[in-house]
Every structure is written in structure tokens, then in C-alpha cells.
Design a protein around this nucleic acid. Sequence first.
DNA 1: CCGCGTCCTTAACTTTTGTTGGAACCGGGC
DNA 2: GCCCGGTTCCAACAAAAGTTAAGGACGCGG
Lengths: 243, 243
Amino acid sequence: MSSDAIRAALIRRLRVSSGIAEEDIKEIEALPISVRQFPAETAVVRDGERATDCCLIADGFCARSKTIANGKRQILSLHIPGEIPDLMSLFLHVMDHDLSTLTPATLGFISHETLRKLHRRRPVVAEMFWRDTLIDAAMFREWIVNVGQRPAPARLAHVMIELRERLRIIGRVDGASFEMPLTQEQISEALGVTAVHANRVIRQLREEGIVELQRGRVTVLDEPRFLELADFDRRYLHQSPTL
Amino acid sequence: MSSDAIRAALIRRLRVSSGIAEEDIKEIEALPISVRQFPAETAVVRDGERATDCCLIADGFCARSKTIANGKRQILSLHIPGEIPDLMSLFLHVMDHDLSTLTPATLGFISHETLRKLHRRRPVVAEMFWRDTLIDAAMFREWIVNVGQRPAPARLAHVMIELRERLRIIGRVDGASFEMPLTQEQISEALGVTAVHANRVIRQLREEGIVELQRGRVTVLDEPRFLELADFDRRYLHQSPTL
DNA sequence: CCGCGTCCTTAACTTTTGTTGGAACCGGGC
DNA sequence: GCCCGGTTCCAACAAAAGTTAAGGACGCGG
């Protein structure tokens, strides 16, 4: 993966969410990024660690999670190429959660120092990144609602649609199907249910002819019922600079 | 409530979380703030609205929440004096959730324009506020874990301890007891359970001699068991500039 | 091509949580 | 003092989700 291609998805995302000026695109293209490959299911940064870099996903899927005393794990968010899942580490120095890969992934690392310098030079870029972390927080809010109020089938549908709408921005939705490379165990951790129950719910949605999920790929069979079940309101994704 | 007193709690909080310089305290003391009183249980800003000001809590308790299609409500966070619960509206122009009072409250409003000017003048203050919104997001992450993974009694204990630790910063914890002015209905919305179940859980904690909750006040009866039940790790509150 | 591990799948049973409906309590207004 | 509305509290029953246990599918490496 070329160094340019890595930046492309980021710029594409920033264009959609914040609207980005030509000069600032140049700045981002000039950013020194060191690239590393990670296998699937590997920790990138761990809870309790002090980060010195931010991590830009060039390729592959990642997730953030927290593990509680009894060993249970909760997935907090899913991340796709073009995103910087640990931008918050710029000001929250000690990680309060894990960031790990779901699939084999190519990650670009940008040092905190570099980013801080860029912020001083171009406050508008800082504000763009700030907005990015605020959208991140907006997604957490919706995730709370999902886990707190919706019955399990709706939770699953909601997570699926959120992922789809974000994949759409980077051109990764193929008709009625898109990637969702999580094991049922991981899905259960995202929904806050047990793996057995996640399996029941997946089967139920399949039996009702709403969605099919196999080998890391979702295929929507009945879009209207899927939408209704998920109770999805895209506003919280703030995918427009004026919102 | 004097205009100075309103700023005091904010400065106290910023001192603990970010460490704030004397010049910047002066800047904040000079901020034009317009004060308004709100009755209990009143919306301050609603989901879907476009905010033009940020709201600083001078006195009283507030909560943020979202309501889903079937009418159920999820409380996302509780807020106490000195906090700016809608700082995110500076860059996320359309609200994706409600902000409302729990008790009668005194709120100070600072216009977005004023804040933006301050940021341009003093980038360090902008970074401090950025960090504030990141801590907000860190609390959402923990809230997801709470609602997603912990059994209801632990959820209640966790919310109580989070509130206590934040009240402590502004000097509002009185020995083994502190304010928590929520009805059982509101508690149930915070925990993602029904009101009936919230009542069961409150009773259970009382019967086991762990905490007593009455008329908006929590009294801890058995601190060690309370802590153990809550599975509380304060790190996520990032209450130190170096964290 | 066999064996092993991971994931998926399912069933039976238990526990937690939701639902319904109603009684007791409490504070404020008349 | 008494009524009224909102809480708090509770019990009985229903539904959702957790637990345990075990078989089957599938891919990978020897």
C-alpha cells in the first residue's frame, strides 16, 4: 500500500465530515507517516499505556474495547480505513481502553508532536480534528442508546447499518452487501449480549428474511424491514460540515 | 448567584483536569456570560436544534439523553456545577440529543462566537476545552461498558460512584453521603432498565446494607462492598493533567 | 488426508429483567 | 386538614437473555 493511498481515505472522510481546504489537504499529504502491518486480532495500543503516536487505518478493520473485572469485554466502536481511532490520545495521555485489529491491517502512525505542530501552524486543521473526536463521541452516545434500550435484534441491525453508512463514505458498499468481519463472539461483545444469544439473534434475522450474515459479509434481504428494525437516524454521524 | 461564583466551579474543574495558567484564568473570568434560571425537569437544548451558545452549569443538576422511536429514553450522562455539557455544540452544530435539568438550575450561557474568539487568541485554552470534550467521551465509553456488561446492581453502584467522584472535585461530598437528585424513573433510564427493576435493585442494595438512597441523597453504608460491586476504576475520569 | 482448533449451531434449563396492576407514601396547594 | 399527583414500593406472571453442554462445519498444518 503506497503512502499516498493511506492518506486518501482520511482526506475523503474529512471532506465529507468537515469540508477541507486545498492548502490543508497539502499539509496532510506532507505529514510524515510510518507504516506497519498488523495480523488479525492483535492489540495496537492497550488500556493503561501511554501513546506517543496516533494511528491512521490504511487498510483493515479495528475495534476499541474495554474489559471489566470479571473478564467480560465490551466493544465500544468499530473502525474502518481512513479513521484515526485514537486521536483522543493526543490529549488523554494514558489509554483508558484497548485498540485492536479485527482483520489483518495496515496502520499508519503519526507522532503526537507532528500533529501538535500542525495544529499550531493551522488552527483550522486542529478544529477539523477536534470535530472528528466529537463525532466519535456522538457515535458513543448512540452506542449507549443501542446497548441500553434496544432489544437484541434491533441492536444488531443498528450496528450493521452504522457500519454500512460509514463504509459508504469510503466507497466500500457493494449493492446490498458490505463487509463486517466480526466473529459471533465479537458481535456479542459489541451488542452487550452473550455469544449464544448473538447466534440466536443472527439466526432470527436470517429466518425472517431480513439480513444474511456469513463469512464476514452482510447481505440485506429486506431493506425496509431492516431499516425499521434498526430505528436508525443518521444525524448522529454528522456527515456534513453544516451539521 | 454572583457571576463570579459561576466561573469558580469551572475554573476549579479545569485546574484539576488540565492544569490552567493564571493568564487563562483571567481570560475565563472576563468571558461574558448571560445567566438564566431553569425549573426542574426542563429542556435546555433539544435534539435537532441548532445551538448558538454553550451552557455552563452554575448550580443544579442536568442530564443528557436520547429518546428512541418507541418512546423509551436513555440517559447518557449526569452533569453537575462547573461543567459545560454541550461544549460539543461548538463544532457539532445540530444537537443529536437532549440536554435538560434534573433539579432547578442556574445556567450561564456563553456564545459560540465568544468561545471561538478566545480559542484564536489563546490556543492553549482551546486545547483545554478540547481535552474537556475528550474526557466527556471517555465517560461515555465507560457508560457503554456499564450498560452493556454489568448486572443492574453493579450498574447502579457504578453510576453512583462516578457521580460521587465528580462531586468530590467541586467539594460537594459530605462524608459518606452525597446528592443524587434523580427519581427512580430517571435512574432506570440511566441504567437501561425499567423503573420497576430499578426499584428492585435499589431495595436490594439497601437490604444488603450497601447503600441507602432516599430523597435525592445517597448514603454509603458499606464502602468496601460498594466499591467492589461497582468495579470502579477512576482512570477514565482523567482527573490529572498528566494522564 | 487426517487431526486439531476455531467458530458456528442448537437444545435444555436457569436467571434476570420486563410487564401489569395496584397499594402505600409524601409533599404541596387549597 | 385534606385532596391530588407523582413517586415509591411490591407481587405475580411473562419474556428476554444467560448458562451449560455438546455436536457439526470448516480451514489449516502436518
